[in-house]
Structure formats: C-alpha cells, structure tokens
Amino acid sequence: MSLGPYPAPVHVAGAAGPPGRTDADVIILALDRAEDTIAAIASARAQTGLAKHVWVADQGSKPENLALLAAAVGDAPDATLVRLDRNWGVAGGRNRATALGTGRCVFALDNDAEFATADTLARAVEALDDEPDIAAVACRIQVFATGAEDLSSWGYPPSLLPRAAGAFDAVTFVGAGHGIRRADFEAAGGYDDALFFCWEEFDFALRAINAGQRIRYRGDIAVRHKVSGEHRFSWSGTRWFHFVRNRLYIGMKYGTGALALMPRFLAYQVKGARNGVLGQGLRAGLAALKLARAFRPPAGQEALYRLTPAAQAYIAANDAAHRGGMAKRVRAEILSALPSAAKS
C-alpha cells in the first residue's frame, strides 16, 4: 500500500513532466471511453489561476482508443499520457498516477467528469491552503447534463442532502472529483491497492481522521458527472462483490471483529439476494476475511489503524449522528449507495 517506487510507465504523449513546480497535479485514469476522457482532459487543461499539470494514466484501453487519447494530448506542455503495465483499478491506479507528479496538491477527476467552472481547481487548492487540518476537499458532484445532484455519487448521510450546496465535515469523499494535499496523502500511505475499487476513499479518510485531520465537503466547488444516477450501478460483473468485500475488510482493518460486522454482512446478503447476486455477497465475506488476515500495517503507520477516541468522536459527530441507530444506519448506507440499482 506504499506510494512506490513503482515501475516506470510507458510514456505515450505530451510532456515528460512540468517544466517547474506546480500547485496541483490533476490525475485522470483512462480505460477506453475515449470521448469522455478527452473531454475530461480538455476541462483539466482549461483550469486557470494556478500552476498545474495533467497526468493521464491509461490502464489498458484498446489500441484505437489509446491512439485517440494520444492524438488529443499531442505535444501538450501541460499534460502527459502514460500507459500503466496493467489495470490496477481505481485505488492502485490513483496511487501510481499520483506518484508521477510533484505538485503540492493532487486533484483526482473521473474520466467521465468535467470541472464545473474554469476556477474550480484553483478554489479546491485554496480551500486546502486555508485550512491546514483538512486532508481532503470533497467536491459537489452534479449531473453533467442538468446540474442536478448526482444522487448515485452522494456518499454522505441522506439527511445532509439538503445541504448539498453548503459545506460540512465528513468521514469520506467521492472519488469523481476531490483534492488532497500531497504531503497528507503520503503520510497516510495513499490508497490500499487491495481494494481495487469501491470504498478506497473511506479507507483513506479513516487514516487521515485518525491522524487528527478533517474531510471537508464543499458544495460550492463542483464537478459535473456524465454517468446517470439511474443507471450507474450494474449488478453484472463483480461490482457487488467489491462493494461488500471492501466494506467488511475495512471494518476489520480498523479493529472491528467479524462477529460485530455480522449485521452488516447479513443486510448485504438480503440486498444481494433481492438482486440476483447472492453468490457475489457470500464470496465477498470469505474474501474480506482473507484480506484482513493477510493485512499488516506498513511499518511506522500501525497507529493509523486503531481509531483514537478523538477519531471516534469525530466520526460520531459527523456521520453517525446524521444516520440514527445501527439498524437504520446499515439499511440507509446500502440503499443510499445504490439509489436506483437495476431491478433484474
């Protein structure tokens, strides 16, 4: 789960890197969806008011799509397209893309998202500069076509939805658009490669909170997301497996026993059974146990994996207090994470 050193990726297009120091690196992971990714790159390059560099890490696009990305980046002095050795998922891909740059802040932008305004990136960096105890700035995620809330990307207690345009402290952030101070990212150990995708932001946030920092949601700093809230979650493939496995694994990583996680596990099985993926959920439980048993905190970071009283109080005040009792919280967590899952 370290930040490197990683094998050097293959340089495909654009500059070898920025000519000087930058305020922010924008990282974009690519895997096909060339048209959307090209738009995301253009949006990042159009950001004003600060020194930046755009890093695009391809994780296995088809040759024709990689060629389109290369043509779009061309010989841009402020952008670099590289190809990673394989698909590392969201967690591992972001780790490797982040390691490419040196900017004091890192902004991750989904390849199907765009900045809402030309100064969004500058304002995210300003927010981090203004409050040194903030580890991550969570952006408001809006539906690209309409500007409405992307409900599939609302990763906070449902009761806070009326405050979507405001600001509040949180215990996680949404990956589609967020900024992190590089020093804090490195101090916390980055993302856990083992997660691949799903819950990696929550896992990072727990370590940051345990180190005495905050996660700040800012509804006035927004990105627009092209994935429809009505169709984002798919019950095919292994999405439900990763959702269940990773959440249980994270609980065990931070000291919650398997028996204490049983109500959550059973609630997930009910949800999975209703949607025809009971097998995924059952396999996820065993896989979570396997990951947890193999996990060892990196040397020197052991304390980050046992929540302090201060961290527990922060989580209680900024998450649990907005969700109600345990049964209500588990049910709301599942339903809010999958607001419009296909009924198949």
Rank of each mutant, 00 (worst) to 15 (best):
199 W>N: 10
199 W>V: 04
199 W>P: 00
201 E>M: 01
201 E>H: 06
202 F>I: 03
204 F>Q: 08
204 F>E: 03
205 A>M: 09
207 R>G: 00
208 A>C: 15
208 A>E: 08
210 N>D: 11
211 A>H: 09
211 A>G: 14
211 A>K: 05
211 A>S: 13
216 R>Y: 12
220 D>E: 13
222 A>R: 06
223 V>C: 10
223 V>W: 08
225 H>T: 05
226 K>P: 00
227 V>C: 03
229 G>A: 11
230 E>H: 10
231 H>T: 15
232 R>Q: 13
232 R>K: 10
233 F>Q: 09
234 S>R: 13
236 S>Y: 08
238 T>R: 10
238 T>A: 08
240 W>T: 08
241 F>C: 00
242 H>K: 04
242 H>D: 08
242 H>L: 13
242 H>P: 03
244 V>K: 03
247 R>T: 14
248 L>Q: 10
248 L>T: 09
249 Y>E: 07
250 I>M: 09
250 I>A: 02
252 M>N: 02
252 M>W: 12
253 K>T: 11
254 Y>A: 00
254 Y>N: 01
255 G>Y: 11
256 T>A: 07
257 G>T: 15
257 G>C: 05
258 A>D: 14
259 L>C: 00
259 L>M: 06
261 L>R: 01
264 R>K: 05
266 L>G: 00
266 L>C: 06
267 A>D: 10
270 V>Q: 03
271 K>C: 04
271 K>I: 01
272 G>F: 07
273 A>V: 04
273 A>T: 09
274 R>A: 15
274 R>I: 02
276 G>Q: 07
276 G>L: 08
276 G>H: 11
276 G>P: 13
278 L>F: 12
279 G>D: 08
279 G>R: 08
281 G>Q: 07
282 L>C: 00
283 R>F: 13
284 A>P: 10
284 A>W: 10
285 G>F: 15
285 G>Y: 15
287 A>G: 01
287 A>F: 07
289 L>F: 12
289 L>A: 07
290 K>G: 03
291 L>D: 14
292 A>D: 04
292 A>M: 10
296 R>L: 07
298 P>M: 05
299 A>R: 14
300 G>I: 09
301 Q>M: 15
302 E>P: 00
302 E>S: 05
303 A>W: 05
303 A>D: 13
304 L>S: 02
305 Y>P: 04
306 R>V: 13
306 R>I: 00
308 T>G: 00
309 P>D: 06
310 A>C: 03
310 A>G: 04
311 A>R: 03
312 Q>L: 14
312 Q>S: 02
312 Q>D: 06
314 Y>L: 04
315 I>S: 02
316 A>H: 07
317 A>T: 11
318 N>I: 09
319 D>P: 00
319 D>E: 15
